[in-house]
Design a protein around this nucleic acid. Structure first.
Length: 373
DNA sequence: CGATCCCGCCACTAA
DNA sequence: TTAGTGGCGGGATCG
């Protein structure tokens, strides 16, 4: 009961809707999470700490962490605690997943597949010979594990790694990963999860959202982690910035729920809207894949990852000794005229800049408050 | 209107 | 039992 849920379409004095789903996307949260912890002096990650630092509910941290764990970036150390492993684990983990997937015949995507994930596992000793109720319990636990975000994520990846196709529709992925069951509800739920996963992977540029060449349907293309260089240990050149004005607020924006009004925290309300970059005159957004050899994302010294909208500015030559370092994003955003494919991307970029400045201010502001406990 | 996907209730579990 | 986890899907947003 309850939850009136009458669309309280609050409009901030000015015409700007005071709630944007894009600002709270898992992908953005993931980027912030990675940027926050991709440092050499980071080892343990406290979930509470992460939640408060990133300004989100704990529930969301679970989502991000579970997905990141599937790639090996972090590992569960124990209750409320994870260990940062770093991007270096990605290639290794992907390779393992590929082999594992091949071993499990994960290359079947088409209909009538009846893909069966054997669900291997390390602790392959289930001695539950019988014991009625006992086996029931383990069965339930097993069933739950099979539905876990972590496993779903890994299976999703296997789909790409073990198949000749590199463009997959979430629907097809759901069908393949669902094994069978034509249940419409299960399908819808599965796709919801895949969207979540796709979001964070997109933010990491492991995959890219596109429109199927012919089908026109939205799909995702595997990009992989190959050329992506990261700086395992944050170089010194960051955090030395000072000419950047410090914003008082931090990324903590618990308020602004979907409907609820929430305290009018002036999050993005300021006037940095002057960085309206129009979507350039169509850049020959030709019919089929213009995405040929685009160089998605580069990362700055701190490991911050750009979305699929890498400003053509830094893409110059691929991963040279990325000595670029911290260019002034504010200027870039307001003066540089990037060739974004569309308004959405430019908007997203704006949000990234915003988010980046936010946590940057926080981090720079109060040193690295290494979480203890 | 269909594609997205955030939010947070609440069933499980671990301590 | 309490605290930590994390399925799940309603329904708000986006395009």
């Amino acid at each position: 009961m309850s939850l009136p849920t009458f669309v309280s379409r609050e409009i901030e004095s000015g015409g700007r809707p005071l709630y944007s789903r894009k600002e709270k996307s898992l992908g953005l949260l993931c980027s912030n999470f990675l940027t926050l912890y991709n440092r050499d002096d980071v080892d343990a990650i406290g979930l509470d700490d992460a939640a408060s630092k990133l300004g989100v509910e704990r529930r969301r941290i679970y989502d991000v962490v579970n997905i990141l764990e599937s790639i090996g970036i972090v590992t569960r150390r124990g209750k409320n605690r994870y260990t940062w492993k770093g991007y270096g684990e990605i290639p290794r983990t992907l390779e393992e997943l590929r082999e594992e997937g091949l071993r499990e015949n994960f290359s079947n995507l088409g209909p009538g597949n009846s893909s069966r994930f054997v669900d291997d596992n390390e602790s392959g000793e289930s001695i539950n010979v019988k014991s009625d109720d006992n086996s029931f319990a383990s069965m339930k636990a097993d069933n739950k594990r099979e539905k876990s975000l972590l496993l779903l994520t890994q299976n999703f990846i296997k789909l790409f790694l073990c198949s000749d196709v590199d463009i997959i529709t979430l629907e097809s992925a759901a069908i393949a990963l669902l094994g069978d069951s034509n249940n419409s509800t299960a399908m819808r739920t599965k796709i919801r999860r895949l969207y979540d996963i796709a979001n964070v992977f997109s933010s990491m540029n492991l995959i890219e959202k596109i429109h199927h060449p012919e089908s026109r349907k939205p799909a995702f293309r595997w990009l992989g982690w190959e050329g992506k260089h990261y700086s395992e240990s944050a170089t010194a050149l960051d955090l030395n910035e000072t000419k950047k004005r410090v914003f008082g607020y931090d990324i903590t924006n618990y308020s602004l729920k979907r409907n609820k009004v929430g305290s009018s925290s002036d999050w993005i309300s300021d006037q940095k809207e002057n960085m309206r970059m129009h979507s350039k005159h169509d850049i020959s957004e030709s019919n089929h894949d213009v995405h040929k050899l685009k160089q998605h994302s580069k990362q700055n010294s701190k490991g911050f990852v750009f979305g699929p909208f890498t400003p053509a500015n830094i893409k110059g030559d691929s991963e040279n000794n990325n000595v670029r370092r911290l260019m002034d994003w504010e200027n870039l955003a307001s003066s540089y005229k990037p060739q974004y494919r569309n308004q959405a991307l430019s908007d997203l970029f704006g949000h990234y800049v915003e988010a980046w400045k936010s946590w940057y201010a926080e981090v720079a502001g109060k040193e690295q408050i290494q979480q203890g406990s």
